[in-house]
Simulated assay, not measured.
Amino acid sequence: MGLKRDINKVSPWAADVWEEMTKNGYFDGTRPGAAITREEVAAVINQLRGNILKLILENTDRITDL
């Protein structure tokens, strides 16, 4: 059997991204090493979608000028 993964620890290669994503509210900061569920993916995508739509709405005039 392989090594057991501690789902409560962030992998060194992902530490910076994990910190940014939790700081911005995409994840709650728990279980960074756990497998993600479709429900969690849906929550993150929905938040990203809302942020992108907000950004577009705030910049409609500038987008039209392009």
Rank of each mutant, 00 (worst) to 15 (best):
D6N: 14
D6G: 02
D6R: 00
D6Y: 03
I7M: 03
I7H: 09
N8Q: 13
N8G: 09
K9S: 09
K9W: 05
K9D: 02
V10E: 01
S11I: 08
S11Q: 12
S11V: 05
S11N: 15
P12D: 07
W13M: 06
W13D: 12
A14C: 08
A14K: 06
A14E: 08
A14G: 13
A15F: 00
A15E: 14
A15H: 05
D16I: 03
D16H: 06
V17W: 11
V17F: 13
V17T: 11
W18Q: 08
W18S: 02
W18F: 02
E19L: 07
E19D: 09
E19R: 05
E19K: 13
E20K: 10
E20W: 03
M21N: 11
T22E: 07
T22Y: 03
T22Q: 13
T22S: 08
K23H: 12
G25S: 10
G25E: 03
G25F: 13
G25N: 12
Y26T: 14
Y26K: 07
Y26Q: 08
D28M: 13
D28I: 14
D28P: 11
D28E: 03
D28K: 10
D28S: 14
G29I: 08
G29P: 04
G29C: 06
T30N: 10
T30Y: 08
T30V: 02
T30Q: 07
R31G: 07
R31C: 04
R31P: 01
R31M: 11
R31N: 14
R31H: 15
R31T: 10
R31E: 15
R31S: 13
R31F: 14
P32V: 12
P32Y: 06
P32D: 09
P32T: 11
G33A: 01
A34W: 15
A34Y: 12
A34V: 05
A35Y: 14
I36D: 05
I36G: 02
I36Y: 00
I36F: 06
T37P: 03
T37A: 09
R38L: 01
R38M: 10
R38W: 06
R38E: 06
R38N: 13
E39A: 04
E39M: 02
E39L: 03
E40I: 03
E40G: 02
E40H: 00
E40D: 05
V41D: 05
V41L: 04
A42G: 01
A43E: 13
A43P: 10
V44M: 01
V44R: 00
V44N: 00
V44L: 04
I45S: 07
N46T: 15
N46D: 14
N46V: 08
Q47P: 06
Q47W: 00
Q47M: 12
L48N: 15
L48F: 11
L48Y: 08
L48S: 15
R49C: 10
R49H: 11
R49Y: 06
R49S: 15
G50Q: 09
I52K: 04
L53M: 10
K54S: 01
K54W: 02
K54V: 00
L55N: 08
L55C: 10
I56V: 14
I56W: 04
I56A: 07
L57K: 14
L57Y: 03
E58M: 00
E58V: 00
E58G: 04
E58F: 00
E58N: 03
E58K: 11
N59F: 01
N59R: 05
N59G: 04
N59P: 01
D61T: 07
D61E: 15
R62E: 15
R62G: 09
I63D: 11
I63T: 12
I63A: 14
